[in-house]
Design a protein around this nucleic acid. Structure first.
Lengths: 156, 156
DNA sequence: ATATGAAACTTTAAGCTTGAAATAATTCCG
DNA sequence: CGGAATTATTTCAAGCTTAAAGTTTCATAT
């Protein structure tokens, strides 16, 4: 997906294809860099960071399905990542609920502390990696990305 | 990575963090949709498509390391994907006379034909998924993404 | 020529990812 | 009430992904 099939020089849709390829290359490049630093500096991974970030936003906890929806990944995927975070003591499942199918997942005290440290570094890295984008430009780009995001809401 | 740690309302770097999160959500959403369609319509995967797209651009063939560099993925990764494409008859490895460590990888006749069909559909899908972005806007966004891409060239 | 190191590639182990099937609990409704 | 459909989650198989270690081949400098 990072390459794209011989984007013809012009024609309908070519500009959008080109845009897509740039978008993908940009996010892959940044993602790779962040992944590498997370590993080197904190011995963790991007998926673990994602889950912790989501949970950090919801101190009351989240259902597995909430996590899955929010992170745009499959159910089974979240199960594995949470399993590992639980075994590391960073996350806890609280099984008792009205509905016994569900479990509330939340950060442990330790997980919350650990995440705060990692998140601070993460924000710095992103600032550095996107350093060539002015704050003004960043806001404009964000707006553009937002504008077509709404069109997919509820698509899948 | 799709969520981000509680993007504070403001402050230095917050706009860039927000941009990064949007960028990632956008590309993940599109990527998921394309992956699903590739699977349903052509029973193939995104990584296979990527490799074939790269090879389609280079009829003379590519080295494994070229593929790896171009696609922004690790060496070992490419090995596996190419292995599968070879076993499906879509790609061929040609041992070279000169340097016997390397092998030229290229699409087979069958692979080339198959790819042309998939690529046409793919371009249509991207056009559809980015349909809310005007061609004009697409060009601008592409330009912006390009402008900071150059800053990473050769980073990793 | 021959060691030494670099380069191209593969293999491996661990983890991520999906879609589909399986399990279990809840809700619907006749 | 009790069976059927629905919902939440886990399990599974196959494939993707990386970093690190291993193999083979090549280049170079004695």
């Amino acid at each position: 997906m990072v390459a794209g099939p011989l984007p013809a020089r012009s024609g309908p849709g070519k500009d959008r294809l080109r845009l897509w390829i740039r978008l993908l290359r940009a996010s892959r490049t940044i993602e790779a860099e962040l992944r590498e630093r997370l590993k080197k500096e904190f011995n963790t991974t991007l998926p673990r960071f994602d889950v912790m970030a989501a949970l950090y936003r919801s101190p009351e906890g989240m259902l597995m399905s909430d996590l899955s929806r929010f992170l745009l990944v499959s159910n089974g995927n979240v199960t594995g990542i949470v399993d590992r975070l639980v075994s590391e003591g960073l996350v806890a499942r609280a099984r008792r609920n009205g509905d016994r199918r569900t479990s509330m997942v939340r950060l442990t005290e330790e997980g919350s502390k650990a995440f705060a440290v990692i998140a601070a570094a993460h924000e710095g890295w992103v600032g550095e990696l996107l350093g060539t984008v002015s704050e003004e430009e960043a806001r404009r780009l964000t707006g553009m990305l937002n504008s077509f995001r709404s069109n997919w809401e509820g698509r899948e």
